[in-house]
Amino acid sequence: MAFLLSPLRLGLWKQSIVRCADNTGIIKACIIGLGKNKWGTGKIGDRIRVSVRDKHEWYKGEQLPKGIIARTRKERNRKDGSYIKFSENSFVTIAKNKAKGTKIKGPLCYEIQNNCKSLARWIF
């Protein structure tokens, strides 16, 4: 029970519903795989495989795209002792390590080491 209540479980997991932050036409998606995640939960900057749960009609892409977690409600600790957290969980679709969309809604975090960072308007 103590493990269930511990803060280790408070990040993003499989089956978490995330919002899409770019203009590919996906609205919401469900995480079905966390890559490179040996320990803990999905944090900002982690690669994920998602299943599209809600999309616009004009979305003609794959049903199971890859993505990168852009924002989480769980705070992300930085090495200088500060943290940053957002009010929603969202991801950005990527293919071949490049962002699929051309625009990104909302602010991004500095920890994302991907070229999708250059599309964002605000980087904190």
Partner: peptide, 23 residues
């Protein structure tokens, strides 16, 4: 430190800024 909160594009951002940080 102090925690600052704001919204950008309808997304709320909350950040802790340490008072004694060289950054």
């Amino acid at each position: 430190g102090f925690v600052l909160k704001n919204t950008y594009d309808g997304v709320g951002v909350e950040q802790l800024v340490p008072r004694y940080s060289p950054r």
